[in-house]
């Protein structure tokens, strides 16, 4: 068995065991915590709906694809495989969208090809930036996020460029 399948059960096991030793009312606290988060979930639902609507419409209109075609010549000079450009573009916006693109790269190029490896590194090392920012700030009253987006995207772009370089050097 792989190591990572053990993490989750062991974490939960350790929590419950420690709580029992410390004589915590385990079930009472569990349901209280679950209720807290259920409230948070309903709070963020409208933000999720708005965001997914905008992104879904953008993708369905074909504008995302057109943008990919436009950017491709610029980044291919950096040694970034053209097959991975759609992934790099959609990764910051849509997690489920990225997963679809990632799978198609793997099945078309093979997971052990250069494009397949770069895509895997990208998928593993980056996050759904826009979604994260939107959801995190949605629980606060903040309207002006200042340089949050700029810094987050700077990190993403660094990740895109370095993924190709790292795959060449390390793998």
């Amino acid at each position: 068995m792989r190591f990572d399948t053990y993490i989750l059960p062991i974490v939960v096991f350790a929590i419950i065991l420690t709580a029992l030793i410390k004589k915590v009312d385990v079930f009472e606290e569990f349901t209280a915590g679950a209720w807290e988060n259920m409230k948070v979930c309903t709070e963020i639902a409208p933000t999720l709906i708005g965001l997914m609507l905008a992104i879904g419409v953008f993708r369905a209109s074909g504008a995302l694809e057109a943008l990919t075609g436009f950017i491709a010549p610029f980044v291919s000079g950096l040694g970034f495989p053209a097959e991975c450009i759609p992934l790099a573009l959609i990764r910051p916006i849509s997690g489920s969208g990225a997963l679809v693109v990632f799978e198609s790269i793997l099945s078309e190029n093979g997971p052990d090809s250069f494009a397949g490896k770069v895509a895997s590194v990208l998928q593993g090392s980056t996050e759904t930036t826009l979604y994260t920012i939107a959801v995190y700030f949605s629980v606060t009253r903040v309207k002006k996020i200042r340089h949050t987006l700029l810094c987050a995207l700077a990190g993403d772009i660094t990740g895109f460029i370095c993924s190709a370089i790292l795959v060449k050097i390390l793998l």
């Binding site: 990632f102 799978e103 997971p111 397949g116 895997s120 590194v121 090392s125 920012i133 903040v142 996020i145």
Partner: peptide, 23 residues
């Protein structure tokens, strides 16, 4: 708030489970 959000937009993980599973 900015530093904390930025930390979360850059995925910091030891085990990239999803990518490995799909591979």
């Amino acid at each position: 708030m900015i530093i904390f959000t930025v930390l979360n937009t850059a995925s910091i993980t030891i085990i990239p489970t999803t990518a490995a599973m799909l591979r």
